[in-house]
């Protein structure tokens, strides 16, 4: 799980070159329960840090996924349409949601690294 940066809203981003892959954390998927649907952004859409980018739905709840950093959506994980359970089973792998072309890599500085995030989650009880 190296190279993952987390937000306090439980999204993660993994930087690959000038792009970043985004998903939600293991803690978040456990809180939400069995995922039944993921609404992904359109490719080409520009999102800004903290703005709504996707929606994840379980049977009884729907939650926004906020963009951890700003950028343009260049790819989405289409496989989630047929298999939303991937978010539960492999949140940092097959459960990824979309890829952004980062517009300001400086924004990463405001995010937590893995150890910091784990500490943060512990504080949530």
């Amino acid at each position: 799980m190296a190279g993952l940066w987390f937000t306090d809203e439980h999204e993660w981003v993994r930087v690959e070159g000038d792009t970043g892959v985004v998903g939600i954390s293991d803690y978040a998927q456990k809180q939400l329960g069995d995922m039944v649907f993921v609404e992904l952004p359109a490719v080409g859409r520009k999102v800004s840090k903290g703005g709504e980018a996707a929606v994840v739905e379980s049977v009884k709840a729907a939650s926004e996924v906020y963009a951890p950093v700003s950028g343009e959506v260049v790819e989405v994980n289409g496989a989630l349409a047929g298999n939303p359970a991937a978010v539960n089973e492999d949140p940092y792998g097959d459960g990824w949601m979309f890829r952004l072309r980062l517009s300001d890599s400086g924004e990463l500085a405001g995010l937590m690294d893995r150890a910091g995030y784990e500490e943060y989650v512990k504080g949530l009880g």
Binding site: F37, E57, V59, K60, A61, A62
Partner: peptide, 12 residues
């Protein structure tokens, strides 16, 4: 597909 509905989604 109840997440479309008001009792879950409220103003959305």
């Amino acid at each position: 597909l109840s997440t479309r509905e008001q009792h879950i989604r409220r103003e959305k």
